[in-house]
Design a protein around this nucleic acid. Structure first.
Length: 649
DNA sequence: GCCGTTTTCGGCCCGACTGTTTTCAGTCG
């Protein structure tokens, strides 16, 4: 949820009811929850707002319809209070007084302060009341004047932690992208895995769940207890550890820097537009001197599966699992799964002696009457309910991919030629590659004139026939990444589009789209997808992770419409842009797309040879979004792809 | 604020760690 941009209650839509969209309601509920926290409200009350927000954002049906049919308060987590507030907003265009008051009375700076690690709502409130601090800049000054350490409940260490936290927040927005997290995480995992007597090691936390961004790294290490001390010492002397924040018997907390990597830290080629959004050259320098926090838990082998499950999360999934354990007279924690009647008032490690045994996480799920749930799905977004029905999806894997669409060459803004890209694709064992350079309006990316596009098509035809003659099972599909222009128009005349195998339609005029409201943007996207020649929608929201939020758009409505078109036999797909900077379509919407029958294309948006490999991040997101092989276009062979692309209606 | 119900209010997941205390509050996951 947007840091930087001030929080405001959105204005009612001028056209009338529904005055607010599902996205707006969900966002406001979340924000009210945060504001309540900052005002010291009952934590269970604030949780209700967060739960309500989640419920609304995960709706499959139209919010307006749900309200009109009187079913709003039938939703889990929406009771009388939230129900009537939401109703009033959507039907009458009015926010309840309490919320208006909250938004007006809470300084936006306090919300930003929440981003500082180890500083939560209670202490922010205290700082505000005692010292009048209402933003990060004032907090920094107060720290420098040593005012914080004088406060009751604070001390020198708290003050220093706040200073460090501000620094971290400034550098990386306190979170890191998944690709960066995995780079560091896997490097550390390999190093620890090579230490004597380490029998098991896994990356846990949000990196294991493949969230698009992660806070810090969690690793769980399993070894016999008698070796723990020597292992712990070995870990502390590994390369790449810039600082040790704490080292107890079972938990080691460190800061890693880029010296953990054997080779020089290199981010590879970043698309210019993306680089601009995340801070340009400064960003690259920052990463090169970057750090990341890591927590390592050292446990006995019998505890390993429980600790791994616990630190993999998510928090919401864990809550459900613990409740499930309680329903069965068991207590689930990081140490074990323990029958309640055995432990009386023992807690923690003492109680864990009575734990049931588990060889792996699979056993834990089994003891709670569930099939194994893969880490990607552990978000409490239906995986427990579907697991109960033995109805979990068989998720797509990277090696099911036979090719990819949406790739660039030197003809527009890529770094590799058509020939080099094709060679690289064949080395990945792909059977085809889609080339879609930028279209003419995108001057900054050297967009192709109609003549250039047609000439490119001729070259591709020539190669395809050569491959065919030499019995090489490979072909190039000729496409274009057409800019979406005014009113959702595409960037070439129909006669030109007609000659292509496919069209990826994408928005690039981000500034303009971010200055318009949800309804206008949605309208233009409707027009774009309804264009006969649009095959798939590229990076549908334009977000850059850690860089900028996407433009406002009712993506549910877009996806629903695309689903209808597919029903009518017209092929319309949506991409998961696999660049780790984008990962757009968001995983939270993948399941909905699947439900609506909209095919997904995992697109690397490669600008050079190495960019093709980014499909692995797209696959992570597809898996996180419940997608199976059959939901993904680029698992189909080239003949099937050709048939699908030709269904233009 | 939601939920469930012994239908009107009590419980809402749970433990570790940290830094501040001298028994605990805040934060995190």
């Amino acid at each position: 949820m947007g840091s930087g941009t001030p929080w405001k209650l959105p204005k009612a839509r001028a056209k009338g009811s529904p005055y607010f969209s599902r996205n707006q309601i969900s966002k406001v509920l979340h924000q009210v929850g945060v504001l309540l926290e900052l005002n010291g409200a009952n934590p269970f009350r604030t949780r209700s707002y967060f739960n309500g927000s989640r419920t609304i954002s995960n709706l499959n049906d139209d919010l307006g319809d749900i309200i009109n049919t009187g079913k709003l308060t039938e939703l889990k987590g929406i009771g009388k209070g939230l129900g009537s507030s939401i109703r009033r907003a959507v039907l009458d265009g009015e926010w309840v007084e309490d919320w208006i008051e909250l938004f007006e009375s809470t300084p936006n700076g306090l919300i930003e302060m929440l981003g500082i690690p180890n500083l939560g709502p209670k202490r922010i409130k205290l700082l505000n009341e005692k010292l009048g601090i209402s933003n990060i800049a004032e907090l920094q000054i107060s720290c420098e004047k040593h005012e914080i350490e004088e406060l009751d409940g604070f001390g020198k260490k708290s003050q220093q932690k706040i200073i460090d936290g501000i620094q971290l927040l400034k550098r990386f927005n306190a979170r890191r992208r998944l690709d960066i997290g995995l780079l560091y995480g896997n490097a550390l995992k390999n190093l620890i895995g090579n230490i004597d007597h380490v029998e098991k090691i896994e990356l846990a936390g949000s990196a294991r769940r493949r969230k698009e961004s992660i806070g810090d790294l969690d690793l769980v290490v399993g070894a016999e207890i008698k070796f723990h001390e020597t292992i712990s010492n070995s870990i502390l002397s590994l390369p790449g550890i810039a600082d040790v924040k704490g080292a107890g018997g079972s938990k080691i907390s460190v800061i890693l820097d880029t010296s953990i990597f054997e080779n020089k830290f290199n981010l590879g080629n970043i698309d210019d537009g993306v680089l601009e959004a995340i801070g340009g050259d400064e960003y690259e320098k920052m990463e090169a001197s970057g750090t990341i926090d890591a927590q390592i838990r050292l446990v006995s082998l019998n505890m390993f599966p429980f600790t791994l499950a616990y630190f993999t999360g998510s928090k919401e999934h864990n809550i459900r699992m613990r409740q499930r354990a309680l329903d069965r007279g068991l207590k689930l924690n990081e140490f074990g799964l323990i029958p309640l009647d055995k432990i009386e008032n023992k807690v923690g490690i003492e109680a864990a002696k009575y734990s049931l045994e588990a060889k792996s996480e699979k056993d834990i799920y089994k003891m709670l009457d569930l099939p194994y749930i893969v880490p990607e799905l552990r978000e409490d977004l239906g995986e427990i309910e579907e697991g109960e029905k033995n109805n979990l999806p068989e998720l797509v894997t990277s090696n099911s991919l036979l090719g990819a669409f949406h790739n660039h060459t030197t003809l527009s803004d890529g770094e590799a030629t058509l020939e080099q890209m094709s060679d690289a694709a064949r080395k990945l064992n792909w059977k085809y590659l889609g080339i879609s350079d930028h279209s003419q309006s995108l001057k900054i990316a050297n967009g192709l004139s109609p003549q250039e596009l047609i000439a490119q098509g001729d070259i591709i035809k020539k190669y395809n026939s050569e491959w065919k003659q030499s019995n090489t099972n490979f072909r190039v599909f000729h496409g274009v990444e057409s800019d979406i222009l005014e009113n959702g128009k595409l960037d070439y005349k129909n006669e030109i589009l007609e000659t292509l195998d496919y069209v990826v339609a994408s928005v690039h005029a981000i500034r303009k789209w971010k200055n318009r409201d949800e309804a206008e943007n949605t309208e233009d996207l409707f027009n774009a997808i309804e264009n006969k020649y649009t095959t798939m929608l590229g990076h549908p929201t334009g977000r850059i992770i850690q860089g900028r939020e996407g433009y406002e758009v009712d993506m549910h409505a877009i996806i629903r419409r695309m689903g209808e078109l597919n029903q009518e036999g017209i092929f319309k797909a949506i991409e998961i842009n696999a660049s780790p900077y984008r990962l757009d379509l968001d995983w939270r919407l993948c399941k909905f797309a699947k439900m609506c029958g909209v095919p997904i294309s995992i697109n690397p948006d490669a600008h050079d040879i190495s960019g093709l490999k980014d499909v692995k991040f797209g696959t992570y997101i597809a898996r996180k979004g419940w997608l199976e092989k059959s939901d993904i276009i680029n698992t189909k062979d080239s003949i099937e792809v050709m048939e699908l692309f030709s269904k233009r209606g």
